[in-house]
Design a protein around this nucleic acid. Sequence first.
DNA 1: TTTGTATTTAACTGCGCAGTTAATTAACTA
DNA 2: TAGTTAATTAACTGCGCAGTTAAATACAAA
Lengths: 112, 112
Amino acid sequence: MSADRLSVTFAALADPTRRAILARLCQGEASVTELAQPFEMSLPAISKHLKVLERAGLISRSREAQWRPCQLETEALKNAADWLEPYRQLWEDRLNRLDDYLQELQTKEQKT
Amino acid sequence: MSADRLSVTFAALADPTRRAILARLCQGEASVTELAQPFEMSLPAISKHLKVLERAGLISRSREAQWRPCQLETEALKNAADWLEPYRQLWEDRLNRLDDYLQELQTKEQKT
DNA sequence: TTTGTATTTAACTGCGCAGTTAATTAACTA
DNA sequence: TAGTTAATTAACTGCGCAGTTAAATACAAA
């Protein structure tokens, strides 16, 4: 059922619209209408995306008159990055090995 | 629709069983039955999880007699980490501000 | 109090995941 | 060839997401 926090976070990140919304929020708070503006999508659709992001703890919302400005929350993002971190060694090793191999190829080439 | 690569990757990571499978594969190749062993789940269920991981490019599979050993693939993981990377500054800043605040509190405390 | 603006809720469609059991395919072994 | 082991496919259930339009709510301003 993927009720755990990390699963909910990754699921929320698994949508290009929601990732674009998060990227936009790096520049600071924004209202729902402002966030919806770049997308060819109805407002209710955006509203639902925001609800998914909120449930995942990726954004928080306040109230200002009739607006409900959204703000980026970093902790859930950090948790996702922390989960990925131990794997870094693996892909770096792999890229190094690839690099070594390419250099070896080039050395051989020069000898010809 | 989430047909883009990154969405498929995040979606694949949004499940505790699949994340556990990836963690297990850090230790090296494993067959389907081996991977299924820690879980109270039918083999077809594991088989489907592996298919999701494979479609996301997180694992690759070979053939050895009647076994189909799975291997971790790091590139998709790296892509996910790369997407998160620009946000690192944000949560580090936030943690630093929190830290500053706590230190300030403590300084005030000592003056009392 | 009426009107306008911002946002959400309701009701619906269609799709695909997560799981099940039963049947099937594939390859090894006796 | 028959039987065993490994894994997948088929067929099904139930659930929740992503999107729609239409209606409802919340607040502001005239």
